[in-house]
Amino acid sequence: MRIYDRVMTWARLKSPWIIHFNAGACNACDIEIVAALTPRFDIERFGILLKGTPRHADVLICCGSVTRQIKDRLVRIYEQMPDPKFVVAVGSCACSGGVFKGCYNVEEGIDAVIPVSAYIPGCPASPEAIIDGVVKLLSSLEEKESGRPEISEPLFTEETYERKVIASGIGK
C-alpha cells in the first residue's frame, strides 16, 4: 500500500466528519443524534464532528423513511458529498420503513434510494446505539485498509442518469 493511502485512511478514521439529514423522520432520531453530540455521550471524543454542508462531510447520518417530497433532495445531498462517502441509516424507519411501511407517500427505507453502509435499528435508536454503529462502521473500514476505498459511481449527474435509466429499462 502506498504511504499516501495509509495516511488518508488514518486521517479518515481519526476524524470522520458527519452531516445529519432528516428524510421524513418524526424528530425522535434527530434529537437522539444531537443528544449523542452533547456532554453525556460526547461523540466528539471519537473525532466525529457535525458539519453543516454535505461538501465537508464523509458520513451521511440519515433518519426517516424517505418521503417522496424529500427523495430528490436526499439523492442530491448524497451526490454533493466527496468520495469516499458512507451512509448510516438511523432508526427502524430508515432501515425498513418501520411503522410507516406501506404509507402512500414513503419509500421504504434509505436503501431504496441511496446505498447504505450501516444500519442502526431502534425506535428511536438510542445515543449508545448510534455511537456503537458509527464506531463499528469505522472499525470495518480499518479492516478494509488494504487498497483504496471504492469510488462510488454518481447516481444523479445528467448524462449517467440518462444512460443508466435506459440501460436498466426503468421508467418505461
Partner: peptide, 21 residues
C-alpha cells in the same frame, strides 16, 4: 410538505391499538 408521510390515512388501515403507536 417535505415530511408528509400519510399518517391520517394509515390510521384508517390499522386497528385502534396499532394506531396508538
Amino acid at each position: 410538505g417535505y415530511n408528509h408521510r400519510g399518517v391520517e390515512k394509515a390510521c384508517e388501515e390499522r386497528n385502534y391499538i396499532q394506531d396508538i403507536y
